[in-house]
């Protein structure tokens, strides 16, 4: 790779799901890259393909029901073409994943220590004692009090925040250079969320890990991310450094989304509502700007026929030309 800091390079990735006899792309032509020591946030509403992107990178799709095309380059390997055996060597060892719901991601019948040790058994040749030491070390690292006791417990004995910490410990177990965190704090209380996010950030700074943080919470993005990609209907519509994105959002979708947050300091205002709904996979317009239907007051000429990413500022990319003359419906922002 031309850039030696680059960990993961995703080029023109498509993930299509089979519905009846056709494949419909839930992730449509996504190109992003992740660098060392970077938190890349992927934001969007439900159904925009952010989790599908994550599971595609991890290779978790059933090849009979999905069609994956494009490139996910990791250390000169295209993960898309990898067979299951090789992929298993990558999963956990090179890319760790933290799932949204730790209760369903953890095995209820296994002790915590065995669940963490699972990937150590698979990927390393540590002896049993060494492995146990490593498990305790990991539990310590993620801030669990009294690791030897927790190691012997089952998931149902722990609180939500503790379970999420265990998930993080599992993801960290083989010190992967890349971690994908899919809504890691959505199910948690704000105070616990703050703790978990701080923990992720600390671990990232310590180990130089690259993190792909998938979330729908723009507050979390503003606190955590270095770079942000906003997704809408399977496509990345805007990509920028975090400060640039929040101070100078360009794409109509990003601007609408930022406007619909109940702000802490603006009171009693009507919240901004985006017209219509996210189109379902089958009804997705495959041509033209996908956001056009939700901003009908913008003339059709403003949109591009085949929207591409434009670089509006250094490292700030926006899809389609409709951002240029975009205004909110009544009276602007």
């Amino acid at each position: 790779m031309e850039n030696e800091n680059q960990l993961l390079d995703i080029n023109h990735l498509h993930t299509g799901f089979r519905i009846k006899d056709d494949f419909y792309d839930a992730v449509d032509d996504v190109s992003i890259s992740l660098e060392k020591n970077e938190i890349l946030a992927i934001v969007g509403e439900s159904g925009c393909g952010k989790s599908t992107l994550a599971t595609t990178i991890m290779g978790l799709h059933d090849p009979n029901k999905t069609k994956v095309a494009g490139e996910v380059i990791y250390q000169d390997l295209n993960l898309v073409d990898l067979n299951e055996e090789l992929y298993n060597k990558i999963r956990g060892n090179d890319i760790g994943m933290i799932f949204q719901d730790p209760l369903s991601a953890l095995n209820p019948l296994m002790r915590i220590q065995d669940q963490i040790a699972e990937s150590l058994i698979f990927h390393t040749k540590l002896s049993k004692e060494k492995r146990y030491e490593r498990v305790l070390e990991l539990l310590e690292q993620v801030g669990i009090p009294n690791p030897p006791r927790v190691a012997k417990q089952y998931p149902h004995e722990l609180s939500g925040g503790m379970r999420q910490r265990v998930m993080i410990a599992i993801a960290l177990s083989c010190k992967p250079p890349i971690i994908i965190a899919d809504e890691p704090t959505t199910a948690l209380d704000v105070t616990i969320q703050a703790q978990i996010l701080d923990l992720l950030k600390e671990l990232q700074e310590e180990n130089g890990t690259g993190i792909i943080l998938i979330t729908h919470d723009l507050g979390v993005v503003a606190e955590m991310a270095d770079r942000v990609a906003v997704m809408y209907a399977g496509q990345v519509v805007e990509e920028a450094e975090v400060g640039e994105l929040f101070n100078n959002p360009k794409h109509p979708y990003t601007r609408s989304l930022l406007n619909s947050i109940p702000q802490m300091d603006s009171e009693n205002d009507e919240l901004h509502v985006i017209d219509g709904v996210v189109p379902s996979l089958v009804k997705l317009p495959r041509k033209g700007c996908r956001f056009a239907a939700r901003i009908p007051w913008i003339a059709a000429e403003e949109h591009e026929e085949n929207p591409v990413m434009h670089e509006v500022a250094p490292n700030h990319f926006v899809r389609c030309t409709c951002y240029k003359n975009f205004h909110f419906e009544e009276g602007g922002e």
Binding site: A194, A222, E223
Partner: peptide, 26 residues
């Protein structure tokens, strides 16, 4: 105080300040 400090804020410039404040309250 702790609950209010824990809310993520959309203010990318001052996120270190905000974080420090949260740490202090915690």
């Amino acid at each position: 105080k702790r609950l209010i400090a824990a809310i993520p804020e959309i203010d990318t410039e001052n996120r270190e300040v905000h974080k420090a404040n949260r740490r202090r309250v915690e």
